[in-house]
């Protein structure tokens, strides 16, 4: 009985997991829609597909991997392919933070250094030649949706 009283007392005193103990979630989320459905996907050239948010515009394909590895980009999990549309979410930690180039990025070859292709770019003005900047505050959830048209890709940022 004494042992059990100690046990119950111990368990009573243990809080366990508590969502209040983690910082509030700062998150981008949205939907990526593919024009033409699954039939429009390029066969055999989808190695990796993610939503990536860069602190600054990558000027070379090698800068994509560099930004991911150095932490100067936030990225989603790999998106399923082929698909008609898919949802994504990217948690931002630390926040607040500002991203100057937000894209759906496809790795279309075996090399993570060179084989990158931007499929859709965040451009609130509607002009894909002018990528938009987006900022988010701690605890905010922002929605950015993308449309990918494999027949009409945005300008690539690489020089």
């Amino acid at each position: 009985m004494i042992v059990w009283c100690l046990v119950l007392g111990t368990v009573w005193g243990c809080e366990g997991l508590n969502p209040a103990n983690v910082p509030p979630i700062t998150e981008f989320r949205g939907t990526v829609t593919y024009v033409g459905g699954e039939a429009s996907w390029p066969a055999d050239s989808v190695y990796d597909l993610r939503v990536v948010m860069f602190d600054s515009i990558p000027t070379s394909t090698t800068a994509v991997l560099g930004a991911i590895l150095s932490g100067s980009a936030a990225f989603s999990n790999t998106l399923p392919s082929p698909a008609i549309s898919t949802q994504y979410a990217i948690q931002i930690n630390p926040a607040p933070r500002t991203f100057r180039y937000v894209v759906v990025a496809l790795r279309n070859g075996p090399s993570p250094l060179t084989d990158w292709l931007m499929l859709s770019v965040y451009a609130p003005t509607g002009n894909v030649n002018q990528p938009g900047t987006v900022s988010i505050l701690t605890g905010e959830t922002a929605t950015i949706n993308f449309t990918v048209d494999f027949d009409q890709l945005p300008p690539q940022p690489f020089k």
Binding site: L17, V22, P80, Q87, Y88, A89, Q91
Partner: peptide
């Protein structure tokens, strides 16, 4: 889970 705040939900995707 989706995250600890939403520990009873699967990921959004």
């Amino acid at each position: 889970w989706r995250n600890l705040t939403n520990a009873t939900l699967p990921p959004l995707e």
